[in-house]
Design a protein around this nucleic acid. Sequence first.
DNA 1: TGCCCGATTAACT
DNA 2: GTTAATCGGGCAA
Length: 195
Amino acid sequence: MVKRLRRAFFRRSVHEVAPDLIGAVLLVDGVGGRVVEVEAYHHTEPAAHSFGGLTSRNAVMFGPPGYAYVYRSYGIHWCLNFVCEPKGSAAAVLIRALEPTAGLRAMRRRRGTADDRLLCAGPGRLCEALGVTHAHNGMALDRPPFEIFTRAGAVDVVAGPRIGLTKAIDLPWRYGLKGSRFLSKPFAAAVTPAA
DNA sequence: TGCCCGATTAACT
DNA sequence: GTTAATCGGGCAA
């Protein structure tokens, strides 16, 4: 049964929330799709923006769970995260790829491509397709323009190392939908994460 | 104040 | 395979 996600969903460990988001549906102003790839970040690990402590950029990460943390990447792109765990954990899940299902016309227009596989295959592309910008930083995930729904049934989730990092590169905190053609990159090995 | 670099992408060779 | 685009955070001075 598909249900709208409530804030309590995000209050759990980032390592529970991240795989549970695979297969969920994310919409921003009615545009979006099925989550097929995410990554987990936690302040105890040096790859996280929150590792060095509270700053103006990462302040939302240090707040309560269930809010959007949006940051500028490489001075060019926006990246969307969901803040998790009780306030102060400074943990978040980076949304890396969607299978587009709603608002295809709007996404193709924003992205300037008709190749549906590349509409949301990557954190920067996804934000461009959904129209996510710094204006969404700090917004609640259970209120408009966000709508997030649980997955309908069981899915095969695979895990592997995160993408594009120079620190903590070995932690297998990237989660994806097994076999999806909408991933930003394929998973090297099909390893099912521990429950 | 200045410098370096990044949770990326697209367009190259 | 490599590299430019582009800018705010973090740290050295």
